[in-house]
Design a protein around this nucleic acid. Structure first.
Lengths: 240, 240
DNA sequence: CGAACACTTGAACCTAATCAATGAGTGTGG
DNA sequence: CCACACTCATTGATTAGGTTCAAGTGTTCG
């Protein structure tokens, strides 16, 4: 796929929330200013601390956003699905990226450098409004996570995280919903603020109860209902 | 103070980050669409769950943003100082406010209803860009807090929270920096994800070491240096 | 085939929550 | 103006949830 391929198919990008309600003409103009960037599995679009040069919309693949603490601890902020914006906070706010963006699979993204994007924002107010909506959404998610971290036990937090993954990356398969990502115990730990040991124990217990089926970097949710019961702290996980 | 007072003094609002780089003419037009709203101490601008009708810029007073969890737990998201935007996330994103805004002191804010503000955003791209900057900033703060919650012990988190309060609301007084807000142990607990008991013990210990001086809803930081040492987990809190 | 990696499980430990009782400061109404 | 009530805060004792450390198993990949 080449730049012109993308530029010639603006309609394929109207489903990107950042580009909602933009006419084909405007969209074309915006896409003309983009550069496509390809990144291989495990490689980085950018690393935490790099000066923020560009922001991206993922077109193919999957990206992990991770943040490193000064003392070497890591947290997994979120997985970026295709069609989503990432790297925007740095461009708008600070001068350096506050997190690293790593490709989970070979990935392709459209990128705009900071100055260009700022111009576009001034030219196309809808673009700015869409970006605002996106950031507002992200803030809500972060506040939700904050709330969970401070008020919920580990087991509930893991249940919530899994349910979110089911929403975002679930694929219906025989006998349940598979989380369609390579997802290690460590990953889940970094998403929920616990250790891989506790995640392992928790998932094992759930497997005993038939709620999930686990494998190496793989989680299949057999009884979403049961997970919800745990997440909501309901009395009895009804057997359906 | 009346609406016309505010509208006639646009220059006094150019220091509001939301209004940066807007000409006096534009600013006047924006202010014409605002309504001032007065709220007494302890009363609410809006409550979590209310349908989002307006967003505000605080002109006088001080506001607490708090979020309630389904199981009755509460977290203190942040204190809004004068000149700052609040209530924007709900207007841009969801349909209901995700948190409650309570006046700490008698307060006055400029308010725009959702539809009006959306129009303004389309008309004045700079306004949208400033809003984006603001939200980006907030996201960084939330991510930082997330990181702290998952990687730091309670004592360090409290130290960080206090240092932030010093930054935002510190007032230099004889013998240190006073946090110029009524700040209970419970408040600090809700900011750091712990209990008022632990906060109480921690502050008492710090008082023993001469780092702070505490009273009822009052914290005076005597040795900011010492707090930094705790927050950064440095070896020895050097005696200056 | 060997090495690296992901995962599991047990045992010991520890931080911080919880529960309970008491003390101090503030405000209000008789 | 004092007494009472209320809110805020302190401190001790106990407990539990989860981390940490350690040892070992199974899987994948070069």
């Amino acid at each position: 796929m080449t730049d012109s391929d993308l530029a010639s198919r603006p309609q394929s990008l109207q489903q990107v929330s950042l580009f909602h309600n933009l006419g084909s003409d405007d969209l074309t103009k915006i896409l003309e200013r983009a550069r496509t960037r390809r990144v291989e599995r495990e490689a980085f679009f950018f690393q935490q601390g790099d000066t923020a040069t560009a922001l991206y919309v993922l077109t193919h693949g999957q990206v992990r956003l991770v943040q490193l603490s000064p003392d070497g601890n890591q947290i997994l902020l979120r997985f970026i699905p295709p069609q989503e914006l990432f790297g925007g906070i740095a461009v708008l706010g600070d001068t350096v990226y506050p997190a690293s963006a790593q490709a989970v699979q070979d990935s392709i993204a459209l990128g705009w450098d900071s100055a260009t994007f700022m111009q576009l924002l001034e030219t196309f107010p809808r673009l700015a409004i869409n970006a605002l909506r996106h950031l507002a959404q992200r803030i809500q998610e972060l506040q939700q996570r904050n709330l969970e971290l401070t008020t919920e036990r580990v087991e509930r937090r893991i249940a919530h995280a899994l349910l979110r993954l089911v929403q975002a990356s679930g694929r219906k398969v025989e006998g349940g919903v598979l989380i369609d990502l390579p997802l290690s115990r460590q990953d889940l730990a970094e998403m929920t603020g616990t250790t891989l040991y506790t995640v392992s124990r928790t998932l094992s217990a759930w497997q005993q109860r038939g709620i999930v089926e686990i494998g190496r970097e793989r989680v299949l949710v057999r009884l979403p209902h049961g997970l919800v019961a745990i997440a909501e702290d309901l009395p009895a996980p009804a057997h359906n």
